[in-house]
């Protein structure tokens, strides 16, 4: 143990993010059942469990499951309405789907030995670029060429307008990148930090501190998981608002 420590940690803190086939050791094809797909499926089943089975009774006095569902539904509905306005409510199902998937895969990943789908940049990039493409297409369909007014600040001084337009275009195209990397990076960073502390817990001298550290970071992660799902959703709403009302 002692001589292993000189070369760094005993185990790799990023080993937990390797996508492995669930059965056998074959190469990972697009149809292979991996730990990633397993945990995505568990997240979907949990969502179905809470929202379809849990609120099937439609009781006037809600059961526990039903009140969780109502709480989340009401929260997201109010957020969409506040940020995008009345005409954005049409797109509420999409935003709700994004939020639920991210929230549930974030929280299920906090179970020890589980795999977090949202720590893969591939997964979050699909979500982020999906939002980007939907919003851009929607902006052009609803507003036509007027959507380009988003980049042309009509209340800025005339000399500055082209420069601002260039900056705006760049920042528009960086959006999906930062949108997806923010989520994946936060989740991955949190899990890697937990793993690093777990590595220190193997040393007898610092193990009490390391275990306390794990508890503290875990508590922080519970917060971060919720906040990141919220942030992803509210940024989707902000981008949607830009598409619906480009000229401000």
């Amino acid at each position: 143990m002692a001589e292993e420590k000189e070369g760094g940690l005993v185990f790799h803190p990023l080993d937990q993010f390797i996508v492995k086939p669930l059965f056998g050791d074959g190469p990972v094809q697009f149809y292979t059942v991996t730990n990633l797909t397993l945990w995505m499926a568990i997240a979907l089943l949990a969502i179905v469990g809470v929202f379809v089975l849990g609120s099937r009774g439609r009781a006037v006095i809600p059961t526990r499951m039903q009140s969780i569902g109502e709480l989340i539904y009401g929260f997201i509905y109010k957020m969409v309405e506040d940020v995008t306005g009345k005409d954005g409510v049409k797109y509420f199902p999409y935003i709700m789907t994004l939020f639920l998937f991210i929230l549930f895969s974030n929280y299920l990943a906090l179970i020890p030995m589980s795999y977090s789908p949202t720590s893969m940049i591939a997964v979050t990039a699909v979500l982020g670029f999906g939002v980007f493409m939907c919003v851009t297409a929607l902006g052009f369909i609803l507003n036509g060429p007027k959507f380009l007014g988003l980049f042309w600040m009509s209340d800025a001084p005339a000399i500055l307008r082209p420069i601002i337009a260039v900056i705006e275009v760049i920042s528009y195209f960086v959006r999906p990148v930062s949108h997806s990397i923010r989520l994946a990076g936060n989740i991955m960073a949190g899990h890697a930090v937990l793993k690093v502390f777990a590595g220190f817990a193997a040393l007898t001298l610092v193990s009490p501190v390391a275990i306390f550290g794990i508890i503290a970071i875990y508590g922080l992660e519970v917060l971060v998981c919720g906040i990141q799902a919220y942030v992803f959703t509210i940024l989707t709403c902000v981008y949607l608002k830009d598409a619906l009302h480009p000229a401000h």
């Binding site: 506040d82 990397i181 923010r182 990076g185 906040i227 990141q228």
Partner: peptide
């Protein structure tokens, strides 16, 4: 609060980028 979280997310994302470069 929504503005607060958006601001926090934008500030934090750049730190995450640095962390990614480091990794």
């Amino acid at each position: 609060t929504a503005t607060l979280f958006i601001g926090l997310a934008f500030a934090e994302a750049l730190g995450i980028f640095a962390f990614l470069v480091s990794l």
